[in-house]
């Protein structure tokens, strides 16, 4: 158990170290999402009513599309010098490699989401720093990171990977996206926790199923 944790930590640390030196994944996510939110804010000119109606959808669509951009950037580190080969040569289970890489992506996504939340609050004048929204954001980050790690590994060696990644990723994370939008909508509308609960439960079930499936499939997709 301790050995597994030290391996996971080493892999996560590797992801964080590379990102801290480039900052291209987190910066790509924050910049892209902020631009999308800004464009919609300028186009909609949100007032109290339209902000409630359109804001949650704009926020999560921006985060999801920005997540794809970030994952494409993260993949490029693994492809340079065929660096991912070092992980494949290591005498460790592919599951641990998956957990370590997903954990790294989860950290970038969570940090980027918090910054995007601030931008959104400013642009749409909606307070989204509420417990249920932060919880669903955490669940969304877990799901996005695990599914994104699986799909970006699947298309490592495909020439049109920038096109393929969103085509695979976006339909797969749709249930998570819907639940995040719904929780945000009911929460900013002033509804109680009980209105958010079914959507949070959906996100939990999604994470359990897709994190498990992604971990099981990762070993196969990493092979040539």
């Amino acid at each position: 158990m301790t050995a597994s944790l030290s391996i996971i930590w080493a892999l996560t640390l590797k992801e964080l170290r590379i990102e801290s030196r480039n900052r291209d994944v987190a910066v790509a996510i924050v910049m892209f999402a902020s631009l999308v939110i800004a464009i919609f804010a300028i186009a909609i000119e949100p007032n109290a009513r339209t902000a409630l109606e359109t804001g949650p959808g704009v926020l999560w669509a921006a985060i999801t599309f920005a997540g794809v951009v970030g994952m494409t950037r993260a993949t490029s580190h693994e492809l340079e010098n065929d660096a991912v080969g070092a992980l494949m040569l290591a005498p460790v289970s592919r599951d641990l490699v998956f957990i370590g890489k997903s954990l790294g992506s989860f950290v970038f996504l969570t940090i980027a989401m918090l910054i995007v939340f601030v931008v959104f609050t400013f642009m749409f004048n909606l307070s989204i720093f509420r417990a249920e929204i932060l919880l669903v954001a955490l669940l969304a980050a877990i799901g996005f990171a695990s599914v994104g790690t699986l799909f970006s590994s699947l298309i490592f060696r495909v020439r049109a990977r920038e096109v393929l990644l969103p085509m695979l990723f976006l339909p797969t994370v749709a249930p998570l996206l819907f639940s995040a939008i719904r929780v945000t909508s009911v929460s900013v509308a002033g509804d109680t926790w009980s209105a958010s609960l079914p959507w949070i439960q959906l996100a939990v079930v999604y994470d359990v199923v897709f994190v498990t499936a992604s971990a099981l499939l990762f070993g196969y997709v990493l092979d040539d």
């Binding site: 590797k14 580190h77 010098n81 065929d82 290591a90």
Partner: peptide, 21 residues
């Protein structure tokens, strides 16, 4: 070479040594 360009030689080798436990 299967090395991470943004890590140092020490970090690349230490990563693999850690993965080998």
């Amino acid at each position: 070479p299967m090395l991470y360009s943004d890590l140092t030689i020490r970090e690349n080798l230490a990563l693999f040594a850690t993965l080998c436990q």
